[in-house]
Amino acid sequence: MSVDKNVVKKISRLARIHVSEERSEMLSSDLGNILNWIEQLEEVNTDGVEPLSGVNEHLLAWRDDTVTDGEITDEVLKNAPEKAGEFFVVPKVIE
């Protein structure tokens, strides 16, 4: 699998990581090499094999519907790079 610069552009955009033109070249070869190496997985016959996303064997436990958290505005906001009053602040978004 070769990863061309357009693919690098697309995925770096999806991942919201700016990739400069010159890095894009390097990344496309890096990612291409890694994916080539990963493609040895194709050798494995996985017909009919159920995918495994986690190894837990217990059942998902449910929480009671009680309010036990929140009302910690200061804690929530204290590490924010920019805030105004009780809001987080970001560059203006146009919908």
């Binding site: 919201r16 929530v76 590490n79 924010a80 790079p81 920019e82 987080f88 970001v90 560059p91 203006k92 978004v93």
Partner: peptide
């Protein structure tokens, strides 16, 4: 870059 950690300022949200 919104709730904690580093932020590089930029004009738009996506650029940020």
């Amino acid at each position: 870059g919104i709730r904690y950690g580093k932020r590089i300022e930029a004009e738009t949200l996506d650029a940020m």
